[in-house]
Computed example of a mutant assay.
Amino acid sequence: MDCTFCSLMREGAARWVFRGPSAAAFAPLNPLSPGHTLVVPTSHRADIFDTPPEVLSEVMALVQRVAEEMRTALGAGGVNILSASGPGSEQSVPHLHFHVVPRWPGDGFSTWPDQQSRHRVEGDPVARLATAMTAHRQAAGHD
């Protein structure tokens, strides 16, 4: 199975905003707003769980740079940064990607969910996450 985004990078068949050695940015086929840009790692990484921290750092640095240019070059008042990773997240292409969507006051749409998940987790999910984060940090020798 060939990845759509890997094919775009290999064939160069995209409207490129930026191409670097570890991260690239290009226009999606159906933009949500003028200047909407996708930022991806240049190597195939299925999702955030499959991406090493050093690659994620490069991708996020490009997300930030694109967002800054949207503010200066396009006059955007802000941006939405959207991503989905893994089964059940509505990830449409199995290659890590971040949508950087420029926004302006009164632009007429919302990218923020207007309802809460029906899924429930036993106990206190925040406490479970905090405990897991502490255990992971201790196992890595950071305490």
Score class of each variant (00 low, 15 high):
1 M>E: 15
1 M>K: 11
2 D>V: 14
3 C>K: 09
6 C>F: 05
6 C>W: 03
6 C>V: 06
8 L>F: 13
9 M>P: 02
9 M>G: 15
12 G>K: 05
12 G>A: 05
13 A>I: 03
13 A>R: 12
13 A>V: 05
14 A>E: 14
14 A>R: 01
16 W>N: 14
16 W>Q: 02
17 V>N: 05
19 R>V: 12
20 G>Q: 05
21 P>G: 06
22 S>F: 05
22 S>Q: 10
23 A>H: 07
23 A>I: 04
23 A>S: 09
24 A>N: 07
25 A>G: 07
27 A>K: 06
28 P>C: 07
28 P>T: 04
29 L>M: 09
30 N>R: 15
30 N>W: 12
31 P>R: 01
32 L>G: 11
32 L>T: 10
34 P>R: 12
35 G>S: 04
36 H>P: 12
37 T>K: 02
39 V>C: 05
39 V>Q: 13
40 V>T: 10
40 V>A: 06
40 V>Q: 03
41 P>R: 08
41 P>Q: 06
44 H>M: 11
44 H>S: 00
46 A>E: 10
47 D>C: 11
49 F>L: 15
50 D>R: 05
50 D>C: 04
51 T>N: 10
51 T>K: 04
51 T>C: 14
52 P>A: 13
52 P>S: 15
54 E>D: 13
55 V>G: 04
56 L>A: 14
58 E>K: 11
59 V>H: 07
60 M>R: 07
63 V>A: 06
63 V>D: 04
67 A>S: 13
68 E>D: 13
68 E>T: 15
70 M>D: 09
70 M>Q: 11
73 A>M: 06
74 L>E: 09
78 G>L: 03
80 N>H: 11
82 L>M: 12
82 L>I: 15
82 L>A: 00
83 S>R: 03
83 S>H: 12
84 A>Y: 07
84 A>K: 07
85 S>R: 11
86 G>L: 05
87 P>I: 03
90 E>D: 13
92 S>M: 08
92 S>E: 12
93 V>C: 06
93 V>N: 10
95 H>A: 07
95 H>M: 10
95 H>C: 08
95 H>W: 10
96 L>P: 02
96 L>E: 01
98 F>L: 09
99 H>N: 04
99 H>W: 00
100 V>T: 06
100 V>P: 00
102 P>W: 02
104 W>N: 08
105 P>T: 00
106 G>S: 11
106 G>V: 13
107 D>V: 05
107 D>I: 09
109 F>A: 09
115 Q>T: 14
117 S>R: 15
117 S>D: 14
119 H>A: 09
122 E>C: 01
125 P>K: 05
125 P>R: 01
131 T>F: 06
132 A>I: 00
133 M>P: 00
134 T>F: 01
135 A>N: 08
136 H>C: 04
136 H>E: 11
136 H>T: 10
137 R>E: 14
138 Q>E: 13
138 Q>Y: 01
140 A>K: 14
